[in-house]
């Protein structure tokens, strides 16, 4: 039992934690402020005046819509691939013991443990050697490689909480392997998969480093992050970039919050008793 005499946090600790929260969040809030500035040539603070016209400007820009649509397509397909492969890998690693298991788990986290630039350049030179033309599909291939890791981690964490006796019980009651998967395993890992899928989607939607290496040069190459990167290096209408940045934040926040609520109650998974 925990004691009720939990000491109060010292004020120094509170202050340090508060400063850390501010450090993490003030920059993001500033993006919102700058989306309403009338100043488009510099980053003047405080903004001289405020306007909402940039939202209308963004709405009219076809290049932004094209970039958004391409990013959505890529993220959806990469997530679908990652969901299948990541779940298979987690299912295989859960409960199995064999020589070299540690190395296999290392292999699955490698695309995230190694800097993205290495994944990017390795894939690029492989595409060059194999004479594969750069297209939307080469970007998807790159994205799926690291999206697998996210799904794998989420699925494995849930598998570990899944009680093996439930599966044995299901088999004992006469269900075959497919039925057991459909009626016992899937309902329990479903929300973890959904969460993993959402995180993978957010990750792919936002990816820039691997994309720069696996994208060609045409219209097929300009995902939303690549569009933003161009704007950062050669700014044109600065507040337009801010409006797009707000949009990107909203698109990624929703799946993250949803993923959080889906995995929040994971400790209470049925059959996970100690």
């Amino acid at each position: 039992m925990r004691s009720n005499l939990e000491p109060r946090a010292p004020w120094g600790l509170k202050l340090a934690a508060l400063l850390c929260v501010l450090f993490l969040h003030v920059p993001l809030l500033l993006i919102f402020l700058y989306a309403f500035t009338t100043e488009e040539k510099s980053y003047q603070f405080p903004p001289p005046a405020y306007t909402t016209k940039w939202f209308a400007v963004v709405w009219e820009r076809q290049d932004i819509w094209d970039a958004i649509w391409l990013s959505v397509k890529i993220a959806s397909i990469a997530t679908a691939v990652a969901l299948v492969l990541g779940t298979l890998a987690a299912a295989a690693l859960w409960k199995s013991r064999f020589i070299g298991k540690d190395y296999i788990s290392l292999l699955f986290i490698l695309p995230i443990a190694l800097p993205g630039i290495i994944t990017g350049i390795a894939l690029r030179s492989a595409f060059n050697v194999a004479d594969i033309p750069f297209s939307m599909w080469t970007i998807i291939l790159g994205h799926a490689t690291f999206c697998i890791v996210v799904v794998f981690n989420n699925a494995l964490a849930r598998f570990r909480r899944l009680s093996g006796s439930m599966i044995e019980a299901s088999m004992d009651l006469g269900a075959d392997g497919f039925q057991t998967f459909r009626y016992v395993v899937l309902p329990q890992i479903g929300s973890a998969l959904l969460a993993g899928g959402m995180l993978a989607f957010a990750l792919s939607f936002d990816e820039v480093i691997v994309t720069t290496f696996t994208a060609g040069t045409g219209v097929d190459a300009k995902t939303l992050p690549i569009w933003m990167l161009d704007e950062l290096i050669r700014p044109r209408q600065r507040p337009v970039t801010n409006v797009v940045a707000i949009f990107v934040m909203c698109v990624t926040f929703i799946p993250i919050l949803a993923a959080y609520y889906l995995t929040r109650d994971a400790e209470h998974t049925a059959g996970a008793g100690k």
């Binding site: 920059p27 993006i31 820039v208 950062l232 990107v248 990624t252 993250i256």
Partner: peptide, 18 residues
């Protein structure tokens, strides 16, 4: 989690402003 998962480029960009 919010700053962790929010767009990498947006985060870099916000510091360009700051």
């Amino acid at each position: 989690m919010l700053p962790l998962w929010s767009s990498y480029l947006v985060k870099v960009y916000s510091w360009k402003l700051i």
